[in-house]
């Protein structure tokens, strides 16, 4: 039994310490967003955020996660109250089959957390580990740029409010 903090909530996990985070999220916590793509750290479908960094959940065993904070796409927002990155992907219609998209979004989110105004080259470099087979790349790039703008606007308005 181990405590794992996911999307701000403590969970008691009954799984072997060698269990990759991906299966804990999907099987124990019934979360959908992190996807099984290869199990080998080659495709990025399983990307989640751990302590602010994009991490491949399929090669990250539970034993590494003591005391760390895990965030999945579910933890960012909902259909009715989407996070900027989610709004951006909806507005850009940045999906075809969409299987890779959750991983793309989490990696992009981690980038935007540490670099709120990335250049196009920086976004491409960051997303290099993640594969998309439908060929939605152009839209994904546009969506990440849009998310950066949305976050910027959200920050600006939050600052304006707090300034009043």
């Amino acid at each position: 039994m181990m405590t794992l903090k996911v999307n701000g909530q403590d969970n008691q996990i009954d799984a072997d310490p060698d269990t990759p985070l991906l299966y804990v999220l999907r099987d124990d916590l019934k979360l959908n967003a992190a996807k099984f793509g290869c199990g080998l750290g080659q495709c990025g479908s399983c990307t989640v955020i751990v302590d602010g960094k994009a991490v491949l959940s399929c090669v990250t065993p539970l034993v590494l996660l003591k005391g760390k904070q895990v965030t999945t796409l579910e933890g960012l927002g909902t259909v009715s109250a989407p996070a900027p990155i989610q709004r951006a992907f909806m507005e850009e219609q940045a999906a075809q089959c969409g299987y890779c998209i959750a991983g793309m979004m989490m990696r992009a989110q981690a980038l935007l957390l540490r670099n709120p105004k990335p250049t196009d080259a920086e976004i491409r470099a960051e997303l290099q580990p993640n594969l998309c087979r439908c060929g939605t790349h152009m839209r994904i790039l546009r969506a990440v740029h849009r998310a950066a703008r949305l976050m910027d606007t959200a920050d600006a308005s939050a600052n304006a409010r707090s300034g009043q």
């Binding site: 959908n32 796409l73 579910e74 960012l76 259909v79 909806m90 999906a95 969409g98 299987y99």
Partner: peptide, 19 residues
């Protein structure tokens, strides 16, 4: 028209047989 399946896919909804 925005696609009907995208909102679930970008918020971690149940979207695939895998889910």
């Amino acid at each position: 028209v925005p696609r009907v399946d995208i909102p679930a896919k970008v918020t971690g909804g149940e979207a695939y047989v895998q889910d």
